[in-house]
């Protein structure tokens, strides 16, 4: 009995020794080398990515409040009604308008000399406009080599030329922007054959297009807006930072 117990104790000691050998070194000898200093982490300079020129902050905040009111009392009820439609129908509408933005994506890719991106967008447009029933479906995304790529716009093209973003702006109804993206927006509109100033549609069709595109985007935009607002200490500054980080990253890609 005693012999068995000794054997067991020896086995146990062996197991424990083996187990301790497997421990990561910092748990065994308690060394504190190689740790990141908390002070270094706290004091790390984040100014470069966070610095945003906002000389019009006062005016921007007024427009931000106005937009918030408009989203709350105009856009949200419209979005709620739109969301009564089946999600497959809403997805079809969203794909349809996304497909119609092809000229902007194509031109923006070409402006940045992204030939492969332009070619891919062209093939996607061809497939989705035909097999995809005028763009209401997105069969291209399921095909190898035709997967969706990041959207390009004129604002990004201007950024890729090294043109500065300029001061931060809040546009009525449209939300966050900056001088470069505002110019880019005018460029996008000039390229698109569906909206003014160079539209091929008559005024009624233009209005239907504008409303349809706007409403189809509302649910996603409002959800993002609510998430941002719900987690922010200062929603204005939070949206400003999120927008500028997102756009800077889009230009870099």
């Amino acid at each position: 009995m005693r012999r068995t117990s000794l054997k067991l104790r020896f086995s146990l000691w062996l197991i424990c020794t083996f187990a301790l050998c497997l421990l990561p070194s910092q748990y065994v000898n308690g060394q504190d080398e190689g740790y990141l200093s908390e002070e270094a982490l706290f004091e790390e300079d984040l100014d470069a990515p966070t610095q945003v020129s906002d000389p019009l902050e006062g005016l921007n905040r007024v427009i931000f409040r106005f937009n918030d009111y408009a989203y709350q009392y105009v856009a949200r009820p419209v979005s709620s009604v739109y969301q009564l439609a089946p999600s497959s129908a809403r997805q079809g509408v969203s794909h349809f308008f996304d497909n119609l933005r092809f000229p902007v994506r194509l031109t923006s890719n070409l402006l940045q000399a992204r030939i492969s991106g332009a070619w891919l967008e062209t093939r996607r447009f061809a497939v989705n406009s035909t097999v995809g029933l005028f763009g209401m479906l997105d069969p291209a995304s399921g095909m190898e080599g035709l997967e969706k790529i990041d959207n390009e716009d004129v604002g990004q093209a201007l950024g890729s030329y090294g043109i500065g973003e300029g001061p931060y702006l809040v546009l009525p109804f449209m939300g966050p922007s900056n001088v470069r993206d505002l110019i880019g927006l005018l460029g996008d509109r000039s390229i698109s054959p569906w909206v003014e100033p160079f539209s091929i549609l008559d005024s009624e069709a233009r209005m239907i297009y504008g409303m349809g595109e706007g409403v189809s985007r509302l649910p996603v935009y409002l959800e993002l807006y609510d998430q941002m607002k719900g987690s922010a200490i200062d929603p204005y500054s939070s949206l400003k930072s999120a927008f500028m980080q997102y756009r800077r990253s889009a230009v870099k890609k």
């Binding site: 966070t50 945003v52 939070s238 400003k240 980080q245 889009a250």
Partner: peptide
């Protein structure tokens, strides 16, 4: 998340404050 840094976002809010 989607190229937006959580820390930078709060840093902007707090700097502005």
């Amino acid at each position: 998340a989607e190229d937006i840094s959580f820390v930078s976002n709060y840093r902007q809010q707090l700097d502005d404050h």
